[in-house]
Design a protein around this nucleic acid. Structure first.
Length: 581
DNA sequence: GCCGTTTTCGGCCCGACTGTTTTCAGTCG
C-alpha cells in the first residue's frame, strides 16, 4: 500500500490544480499545494491522526483537516468530486507539459474542447491553434517539445515509485507459507533511474498461492495475465508487475537471469558456451549430460563461470565482466559507507521541517556529520538574508554534537549566475564550512557560455560542491548543454566535488556522466538535497546511481572521516587552490 | 485556505524570462 500521506498529497495537489485551472483564487490553490507538500513530507502517518493531529501539521487548517478526514473515512472528498465533474482528467494532464500551465490548459479546453495530451498534439499538427490567443508559433513549438520530453520518459516509472511498490509486494509475498525466497529483480535491482516494469521472483514448490495473492492485492487494479509460471498485474498507479515463481533449486540462476541486463546476460551466456556449458534461468548445465552444475545461488553460478559475484548495479556490460575476469571489480560504495549528508534544507528556506527536526532525524539515521545548506539570497523567492543565515549558524553551532555526537557543518546552496558568479562576497563566503553551488536559472545559454559559467563557478575557491550539475529533471527537463569534459577536468583540478543528487527525479549526475567524470579524477558527494525528514531516505537512490558509476569509497567525499572531509573543504587553503593539482 | 496576531482580517514566495500582447499574461524556480 502506498502511504496514506502520499494519497492525500496527490489528492490535495489535484484539488489545487483544479482550482488553478478553473481560475479560482490563486492563494487558495497555493494553500492546498502547501498543505499537500506538508502532508507528503510529514513523518507521521496521517491515517492515524485525528483532526487535532492533522491541524498540527504546518499549513493544514480546519478546512483541509476536515477534507483529509473525509477522504480517510469515505475514500472521496465531495469538493474534489465537484471540481472533477467540471474538468476532465485529461485537462489536468495538460499542465504536466512543461511551459503549459493552468491558464493555457483551460483555454484549450474551453475554446477547442481539447482534453488530452494526444488531442493537443493532434491539434497542433493540424494547425488548429492558429487563431487561439496566446498560442503563437513559438508557444506551439515549446508545447510539442514538452510533449516529446514527456513521451521519452513514456511508460517508464521513476525509480522510487517502483522500489516502494516492489518492496510492498515482496513483503506481502514473503509472508506466505511455502515462500523460500522472494526478491525483486530486473532493472529495478540494477537501480536504473527509471523502470519499465517490476519483476518479482519467488522460490517455492507451488506457484498458485503466490499468483493468487498477487492478483488479490488491494493495490492490484488489473490482472493482465494469470498463469502458473507467470502472473502480470497493473497497480492502481499504472505500474506493471510480473511475478515468476521458480523451484528453490533454480533461485540463483533465475535471479541472475531476470536481473539482466540483457547485454550482461549475453556476456555470461557466451562465457558459458565457451566452457561447453549452457546458462538459462533454470541453471548452468553441461550441454552433453544436461547435468546441472550451478543454480542455487548467484554466487554459485558466477563462480562456476570463473567469475566473482558481480553487484547488480554493475551489470550493464560496461566492462564489468572483463574487470571481474581480471579480478579488478571495484569495491563499490554502499549506503553504509556514507557518513554524512552535504546538501540539505530546512524551513528557513523551502524545506518543510525546522533545523532541529532535520538534525535529529539525520542523527537517528546514524550519520556522523551533516551539513545544513539553505538557499542563498539570489533565489529571491526564498527571501534569504545575511541576518537569517547568520542566526541559523548560531543555532547550528549550538546543536553541533548534541544528537548522538553528530557533527554539524553550516553551509549554503549558492546560485550560479549567468556569468558564473555566486551570491555574497568572498569575506562572507569564508564564514561557511561548506558551499554547494547550483544552477537555478538561465538553463538555455549556449554551450560555450554555459561551459564558461560552470567553469568559473567550479574554480571559485569557496565553492566545494557543484549541486545537481546538469539540473535535469527526469522526464521533464533535459540537462543543460555544456562541454562536460572540460567542466569535469576543471573540477578535478580545482578540488570541487560533483554532486550525485539523490532526489529520485534528479539523480544528477547520472551514471554515465559519473563514469566520464571519474576518468578525470573528480571527487563526488552523494547528497539527498533533503527538503523534509523523509527525503533523508533518498540516499539509497544516490548510492545506487554512484554504484552504477563504479564509484568506490575513495571517490565519494562524504564517506570520508570528518577530518579528511575538512581537509578537502579547505581546498588546499583556498588561496592555493589548484596548486596541488 | 492558512497564518498570526495587531482577535478579525490582510497578507500570503519574488522576480525573471518568454512570447506575443503593443503594455503584459503565463510559467517557472
Amino acid at each position: 500500500m502506498a502511504r496514506a500521506n502520499d494519497e492525500v498529497e496527490a489528492l490535495l495537489q489535484e484539488y489545487a490544480d483544479l482550482i488553478a485551472i478553473t481560475g479560482g483564487d490563486a492563494f487558495k490553490a497555493r494553500a492546498y499545494e502547501k498543505a499537500a507538500r506538508a502532508i507528503g513530507g510529514h513523518p507521521a502517518d496521517v491515517s492515524r491522526l485525528d483532526a487535532e493531529g492533522l491541524r498540527d501539521i504546518p499549513n493544514v487548517g480546519r478546512s483541509i483537516a476536515d477534507k483529509v478526514l473525509e477522504y480517510l473515512h469515505t475514500g472521496t472528498v465531495a469538493a474534489v468530486e465537484e471540481r472533477r465533474a467540471n474538468i476532465p482528467a485529461g485537462v489536468r494532464e495538460l499542465i504536466a507539459i512543461p511551459t503549459l500551465g493552468p491558464k493555457k490548459a483551460l483555454r484549450l479546453y474551453q475554446d477547442l474542447h481539447i482534453s488530452s495530451v494526444n488531442e493537443l498534439a493532434a491539434a497542433i499538427e493540424a494547425d488548429a491553434l492558429h487563431d487561439l490567443k496566446g498560442f503563437g508559433p513559438r508557444t506551439q513549438e515549446n508545447i510539442l517539445h514538452g510533449i516529446t520530453l514527456m513521451q521519452q520518459a513514456g511508460g517508464r516509472i521513476p525509480l522510487h515509485l517502483a522500489l516502494e511498490t516492489a518492496e510492498e509486494i515482496v513483503s506481502e509475498l514473503s509472508g506466505l507459507t511455502g515462500c523460500k525466497r522472494c526478491a525483486y529483480a530486473g532493472s529495478l535491482r540494477r537501480m536504473r533511474e527509471t523502470v519499465g516494469d517490476i519483476d518479482v521472483l519467488v522460490a517455492a514448490r507451488r506457484s498458485a498461492p503466490f499468483m493468487d495473492a498477487l492478483a488479490a492485492l488491494p493495490s492490484t487494479a488489473e490482472v493482465i495475465a494469470h498463469g502458473s509460471k507467470k502472473t502480470s498485474i497493473r497497480t492502481g498507479k499504472g505500474v506493471q508487475v510480473d511475478l515468476r515463481v521458480l523451484p528453490p533449486e533454480s533461485w540463483g540462476a533465475g535471479l541472475q537471469y531476470f536481473t539482466g541486463s540483457k547485454a550482461h546476460n549475453i556476456r555470461t551466456r557466451t562465457i558459458a558456451v565457451r566452457h561447453g556449458l549452457k546458462l538459462s534461468e533454470y541453471g548452468l548445465f553441461e550441454v552433453e549430460s544436461r547435468q546441472s552444475l550451478a543454480s542455487r545461488s548467484e554466487e554459485e553460478v558466477y563462480a562456476r563461470l570463473g567469475l566473482p559475484w558481480i553487484p547488480p548495479t554493475l551489470r550493464e556490460d560496461r566492462g564489468e565482466i572483463q574487470a571481474a575476469l581480471r579480478g579488478e571489480l571495484p569495491e563499490i560504495v554502499t549506503e553504509r559507507d556514507i557518513r554524512g549528508d552535504l546538501h540539505t534544507h530546512t524551513d528557513l528556506t523551502d524545506g518543510l521541517a525546522p533545523l532541529e527536526e532535520m538534525v535529529a532525524a539525520a542523527a537517528e539515521r546514524g550519520l556522523a556529520y551533516y551539513a545544513v545548506t539553505d538557499h542563498a539570497p539570489r533565489l529571491y523567492m526564498q527571501r534569504m538574508t545575511d541576518e537569517k543565515i547568520l542566526a541559523q549558524r548560531e543555532r547550528v553551532r549550538e546543536l553541533d554534537g548534541v544528537h548522538h555526537g553528530m557533527r554539524l557543518l553550516h553551509g549554503t546552496e549558492l546560485n550560479i549566475g549567468p556569468e558564473g558568479e555566486v551570491d555574497w562576497p568572498d569575506e562572507f563566503l569564508a564564514g561557511f564550512d561548506l558551499c554547494v553551488a547550483s544552477l537555478h536559472s538561465h538553463f538555455d545559454l549556449g554551450r560555450k557560455e554555459m561551459t564558461r559559467r560552470l567553469v568559473r563557478a567550479c574554480e571559485n575557491p569557496y565553492v566545494h560542491v557543484l549541486g545537481h550539475p546538469t539540473t535535469r529533471l527526469i522526464g521533464r527537463r533535459p540537462g543543460v548543454d555544456a562541454d562536460w569534459d572540460e567542466v569535469f577536468a576543471v573540477c578535478a583540478r580545482a578540488g570541487t566535488a560533483l554532486e550525485i543528487n539523490a532526489q529520485p527525479d534528479r539523480l544528477d549526475l547520472c551514471d554515465e556522466e559519473i563514469l566520464r567524470a571519474k576518468e578525470h579524477g573528480v571527487k563526488f558527494a552523494v547528497d539527498t538535497d533533503a527538503h523534509s525528514v523523509l527525503h533523508l531516505g533518498y540516499l539509497r537512490y544516490g548510492v545506487g546511481t554512484a554504484q552504477r558509476g563504479w564509484l568506490t569509497r575513495d571517490d565519494v567525499i562524504n564517506t570520508w572521516p570528518l577530518r579528511s572531509l575538512r581537509r578537502f573543504l579547505s581546498k588546499g587553503g583556498r588561496s592555493r587552490k589548484g596548486a596541488a593539482g
